[in-house]
Design a protein around this nucleic acid. Structure first.
Lengths: 235, 235
DNA sequence: GGCAAAATGTACGAACTAGTACGTTCTCTT
DNA sequence: AAGAGAACGTACTAGTTCGTACATTTTGCC
């Protein structure tokens, strides 16, 4: 902090050969590159050396900050989950009409998943690994999911008004919305190849967004006591 | 084919030290083990040596029959897709009432995905690889998807009767059904960890099966012209 | 200013992994 | 029955990959 220091290069522009310690930036730089690598190639497919190479620093630092390939991967996962939870918490749905609140929630979920393919891929990858890395995470375990509470309040409000008649649980509703939004992105490649329909096309996207909203809303308005006809199994 | 051959061991029970050639069985044995390995550990995570070890034969034979790790993986994928298509084709939905036909289709899809986790995992894995292996497959490209046609006929019948009013396309409907059934299995591990709800529990399964059926049916019965309210984005 | 701890860089190694060179046995055809 | 090709086994290698031993610089602090 003292003014005159003959050996220190000026703090603002450090392009001189002299090294400059910057722990936070180094750490985040590694995380950014690692996220890209793991999201692209998976945990097994991702290479520590490849990550190190694209970093401003060296492989040594990866082990200095994250201990192992697995530690790095987990840190990436934790940041990805923290990101979506943080944004979810800024959603302000309690002032909207119940139906409109649900539509807004779907709108957000749909767009977020569509725009954050990396997140989708990381979650898919972690599921392939049976969430065995996440199990060790105290960070993710403590990320409380306010979406569920929010949905709960919306459903209650809707049922009080009478617009919603279906006794569906908040978690089930969230599952249903997530499933569709997630699948569109996660399974885009095989689906496109088999059914010859580009799920990334803007027109398709708009149609699908309307479709999932319609499906959820009509489900919520129905009484949820579908006539369970005896299903004729083809055996 | 000739009767007396002094050197050949009896054809039925071959537990003698003398080797017995059996190309088809060897090939299928490798495929079975490989499916398990790749479904468990992914393409990058799967080890050729590990597969060879659990096989009745040796690594040499993997390369003899499949050429490379990638070739083996693709063969596994092709068989998995062939399996589901073959079973799908035995579904006889054209004799059912439209609504009942849709419910039966959902019932089948739900149960199949639930019971064939390996298939789900292989598809997830292939999507992580952006379907780059499948792109090279002539087998999968030529597996025509009769489900879509079947759904098309059901929808037409339902609209003719008037039970269905929604102009949804067969592919979109299939996507919607698949998405929910698939996601429940594919994302089971992270979902369970975060939302503390065991998606594999029988009670949950039954409830979800009814839920997706209700959602789809009410969507089909609605006119599909949801009031597109101006969405108040929270920015 | 000098010292200890934090932060960083270089070079290397042990283990793993896909793939193959080479040799043997089986089986079909004639 | 004999020859040819298909089916199979063993042992090895070249390249990769995670991780670390060792050395150096930077920085906060008294």
């Amino acid at each position: 902090m003292t003014a005159d220091d003959p050996t220190t290069p000026d703090a603002s522009t450090a392009s001189k050969p002299g090294r400059k310690n910057n722990p936070e930036a180094t750490r985040q730089n590694i995380l950014d590159v690692a996220r890209e690598e793991f999201a692209n190639l998976g945990f097994s497919g991702g290479r520590v050396d490849a990550i190190a190479e694209r970093t401003r620093t060296t492989k040594r630092m990866i082990y200095y900050y994250f201990g192992s390939k697995e530690g790095l991967y987990l840190a990436v996962l934790e940041q990805a989950y923290s990101d979506i939870r943080r944004i979810e918490n800024t959603l302000n749905l309690d002032n909207l009409e119940p139906e409109q609140a649900i539509r807004t929630l779907i709108d957000f979920t749909f767009d977020y998943q569509e725009q954050h393919e990396d997140f989708i891929r990381l979650v898919s990858i972690e599921n392939i690994h049976r969430a065995e890395h996440m199990k060790d995470s105290t960070v993710i375990a403590n990320l409380n999911v306010t979406v569920i509470d929010t949905i709960g309040r919306i459903l209650d409000a809707g049922r009080a008004t009478g617009v919603f008649r279906n006794p569906i649980s908040p978690t089930d509703l969230h599952l249903m919305i997530s499933a569709f939004c997630f699948f569109r992105v996660s399974n885009r490649h095989t689906f496109t190849l088999i059914f010859h329909q580009d799920l990334a096309a803007p027109a398709t996207r708009a149609r699908h967004k309307a479709m999932i909203a319609d499906a959820i809303i009509s489900l919520l308005k129905s009484d949820g006591t579908a006539p369970v006809l005896p299903l004729a199994h083809s055996t």
